[in-house]
């Protein structure tokens, strides 16, 4: 319930390249985001400053909120205004554009009312509960104290190099990334089968012997049922037929089994479809 009081937490995450590369974005969405990024830069006028200080009903706030909603639409029941600060944090830190180690800046647009300067730091110790505002403030102050972030008190913009951010790789719950990973795993080329020669030799030896007794028992059964003599052209043809069909099956099966034991390759899970 306390989170409802934090109506106007406005966060925009993006990156700029120091070396002049434009922000990469989807055609429509990208243009919108660029607009969003430009606006705070131009917001030196009194009206815009005021609107930042009082974000309720403010156009930029709405736009950013919509943007966040759209961006993180895959997260069920996410309400930006009521969002748990930890979730917001993970959303922020897990934003796909952020690449650890790249010389980019991350801009967090914060309403001035949050009071991001160290002087206004809330004294959270001793309190039973902390609201979202306090938690985020603490996190921001920690970054500031570490000397990793810079704050523009006039606009409420906090910036810090992205390489300073620990990007929670596991926390980003994005469907596109998930699908990409799924594709990557699913279409990965299957491993080379048994480079080791031993399974092939064992399988080959077994494959040559296995059809012999099978030929024998089948021929005897057929001879017994249909009454044709062994040693004739029919039994010879049948022997060849059985050998040709059984040998590869035996060789293949044993090759995979021995290969699984020796090379520790998981052939069976992949192959039986």
């Amino acid at each position: 319930m306390l989170l409802k009081s934090l109506f106007s937490l406005l966060i925009l995450v993006n990156f700029f390249c120091f070396y002049g590369a434009p922000a990469i974005a989807m055609e429509a969405e990208g243009q919108e985001e660029e607009e969003l990024l430009k606006r705070p830069k131009r917001s030196k006028g009194k009206a815009e400053e005021e609107s930042l200080q009082n974000p309720a009903g403010n156009e930029i706030a709405q736009e950013i909120r919509q943007k966040l909603r759209k961006r993180f639409r895959n997260i069920k029941n996410l309400k930006i205004e009521e969002c748990d600060p930890q979730i917001i944090k993970s959303l922020l830190l897990g934003y796909p554009r952020l690449q650890k180690g790249e010389p980019n800046l991350v801009f967090l647009i914060l309403p001035n009312s949050l009071g991001v300067t160290p002087e206004e730091r809330p004294k959270a110790h001793g309190r039973k509960e902390k609201n979202a505002q306090q938690l985020i403030q603490e996190e921001l102050h920690r970054l500031l104290e570490d000397g990793r972030g810079m704050v523009n008190e006039e606009t409420g913009l906090l910036s810090f190099p992205v390489q300073e951010i620990h990007k929670p790789d596991e926390g980003w719950d994005s469907i596109p990334r998930f699908i990409f990973r799924l594709d990557e795993s699913f279409f990965k080329e299957e491993p080379e089968t048994c480079k080791n020669i031993t399974p092939k030799v064992i399988a080959g030896a077994f494959g040559c012997v296995a059809p012999l007794p099978i030929c024998g028992i089948i021929l005897y059964s057929i001879g017994n049922v249909f009454g044709f003599p062994s040693g004739g052209w029919l039994s010879d043809t049948l022997s060849v037929w059985i050998t040709v069909n059984v040998a590869p099956v035996s060789v293949r099966q044993l090759w995979k089994r021995v290969g699984t034991i020796i090379d520790k390759e998981n052939f069976f899970l992949l192959k039986r479809i």
Partner: peptide
């Protein structure tokens, strides 16, 4: 790897789909 490349990521078509 499309990770981190927003344009490539958003234009990515799921191969499995």
């Amino acid at each position: 790897n499309v990770q981190g490349d927003q344009e490539a990521e958003e234009h990515y078509i799921s191969a499995i789909s």
